[in-house]
Amino acid sequence: MTILLAGCGDLGTEAGLRFHALGHRVVGWRRSPSKLPAAIEGVAADLGAPGLPPVPADTTAVVIAVAADSPSEDAYRAAYVDGSAHVLDALERDGVQPGRVLFVSSTAVYGDAGGGWVDEDTPTAPVGYSGRVLLEAEQLIRDRFRGTATTATSLRLGGIYGPGRTRLIDQVRSGSAVVPGDIRYTNRIHRDDAAAAIVHLATMAAGLAPTYLGVDNDPADLGTVLRFLATEMGLPEPPAGDAGPARGGNKRCRNRLLRSTGFAFTYPSFREGYRAVLAGTGVRHP
């Protein structure tokens, strides 16, 4: 059985290593395949352009895990909408019908919920171009496989943190972090748990739902997270003030559907996850 990773950056590579550890052949499409570890068969591919490489005939699952080159609507559309369309065109061209196509999306498709809870049944209401474009890509993929034997599923991830993704840690360390004056909920997932969720959904025996929320168990208030990081690093508590607009909207995402599949988090909350990140960066706890 072959797993095709259409987009094989940091998250895709981590997922690929986990697929390989389970005994799967893993093929990774990316512009610079030489950067991939030996466990992943790297193939040079620009998903933003048509005419992608041949799809292995025995491909059982495709994971579309792309990333935009820049934070602009045009870049997002080129990566997520055009990139996904080109992958689907390649499957059709080569007559390959995988059992599953998993699209890595974002909780940005929900917009702001005023601090309320959202889940897979909550109507989408993106407020920015990122959520709108991702939602368009989700629909594109779903429409292409409607009425076929292929299951199309979107995994809507919260903010990914982990090795190399230390934005909040860096803000606290530099003294630029600001605790919002209001309660501002955030939703996140450690990179390793995000990769594990991709592998779990792509390989589990049971049937898949159209959508899953990929967030940890604790949609914590941003101020709580910042104060925790300061304490862990032995630094002063960040000041309260104007923290600017909320990234991704103020909402609390439920992961109940993902957990109902038997998925278990290595880092069920930001506390376990950030402690592991801090240990990896060599930061000494007081």
Score class of each variant (00 low, 15 high):
A90W: 02
P53M: 08
A49K: 15
A108K: 07
L88A: 14
A68T: 12
L135M: 08
S34H: 13
D82T: 15
V133S: 13
G114S: 11
V43M: 12
G83H: 02
D121Y: 10
G116I: 00
R77D: 04
K35N: 07
A85P: 05
R132M: 10
V62T: 07
D112E: 06
E41V: 06
T122W: 09
A61W: 04
V127K: 12
H24W: 15
G28H: 12
R132D: 11
I64S: 01
V109T: 03
V104N: 10
W29Q: 04
D82A: 15
A113M: 04
A49E: 14
D58R: 05
E92K: 11
D69M: 03
A79V: 08
W117F: 12
E136H: 09
R132P: 08
V66P: 03
L88W: 03
A67V: 04
E73L: 08
P71F: 00
R77M: 07
W29N: 08
G111D: 06
R100N: 07
Y129L: 01
S106P: 09
P54S: 15
S70L: 07
V109R: 05
H24N: 11
Y80L: 10
Y76V: 01
S70F: 01
S106Q: 05
F103W: 10
A78T: 14
E92I: 02
S70Q: 14
A44S: 11
L22C: 04
R77F: 13
D89I: 01
H86G: 03
E120Q: 12
S84N: 09
G99T: 01
E41P: 01
A61H: 00
D46H: 04
V66E: 02
P126C: 07
R25I: 00
R30V: 03
V96I: 11
P54E: 15
E92Q: 14
I40Q: 02
W29A: 09
S84Q: 03
V87D: 02
V26I: 03
Q97F: 13
R100A: 11
G116W: 06
A67M: 02
D94E: 14
V109I: 13
Q97M: 12
A79W: 11
I40K: 01
P53Y: 13
V127S: 14
A125F: 00
G51L: 04
R100H: 10
V101G: 04
